[in-house]
Amino acid sequence: MSRLEIVKTYKIYIGGQFPRTESGRYYSPVNKDGKVLGNICLSSRKDVRNAVVAARKAIGSWSERAAFNRGQILYRIAEMLEGRKAQFVEELQFQGSSKQAAEAEVNLAIDRIVYYAGWCDKYQAIVSSVNPVASSHFNFSVAEPMGVVGIIVPENSSLIGLVSLVLPVICGGNTVVVLAAENLPLCAVTFAEVLHSSDVPGGVINILTGSTKEMTPTLSTHMDVNALVYGGTDPLELKEIQENAVLNVKRVFAYLTDWTKADAQGLHFISDVQEIKTIWHPIENVGGATSNY
C-alpha cells in the first residue's frame, strides 16, 4: 500500500503566528492546468486589522535594532531560503513556471535578499547628510523608517516580486503588511515559514492571502498605516489606493518594475520608504581670551 501524502495547509502569517483567517473563509486558486493549488485563506478586513496591529507593535524593536543586526537577520532569511530551495522550485512549477524559470527565480530571490542584507548598515551613510548651516549650529539629517508599510505584491509574481518589494522596506527598519499575489499564493505562505525559521521577529513581516480587491481598501484606508507600496499594474486600483491614502496623508509608491531582472534592486527602494529627519543643536564657541598682564 502506498503512503498517503500529507497535504500542506496554507495559513496566513500575523505577528509571528500562523493563524487561519479569522473569517474561516477559503478560496482555491487553480493553476493553468486547472489543478487546485490549495485551500488558501481568504483573509478578511479583520485579518488586515490584526496584521497592522502586529506590525505596529513590532516597529519599535525592529527600527531600533542595530543596523548590523538587521543585516544579519536578513542574511539569515537568505540562508533559510537556500535550504528550502527545492520546495519553492516545486511550488513555482506547480503554479505554472518552467523548472528553469522556477530555479532562476528562487536563486534570484536568495541573491536579492543577500543584496538587501548588505544594505542594512550602509544606506544610512549614503542618504544622511551634515548640513553646513550658516548659524552656530550642528545640523544633520538622517533617514528614519516611515513606520507600518502596506505592500501589494504584483499579481504575476509569487516570490521574486514579494521579496523585491518587502526586503528593502524592512531593511530600512519599517514593518510591513503584505498582500500576497491572489492567484499565486503558495510561495508567499512558504516564505512566511522561512521567515519564521529565520530570526525575523514576529510582526515585522505579516503576510495575508486572499482577494486583493477586498483587502486593499482596508489597508489603504487604515489610519495606522504610514505608507503603501503598490507593485500591481492596475491603474484604477492604484488610483483608488492613492485616494484612500489621503485620509492620513499616506505616502504611496508604485513600481512597474520587472523584478526578474538582475538589476531590479537598489538603494532607492530603501530610501523611498524613509523619512528624513533633521536635527539642530547649538555649537558653543568659547575661547579667544587673551591676557594683557
Partner: peptide, 16 residues
C-alpha cells in the same frame, strides 16, 4: 521631520 534641540525655529537653505 525637524528636531530642534536647545533651539527652535531655525531655518537654513542647506537644511532639509
Amino acid at each position: 521631520g525637524v528636531i530642534w534641540a536647545n533651539t527652535y525655529n531655525k531655518f537654513d537653505p542647506t537644511s532639509p
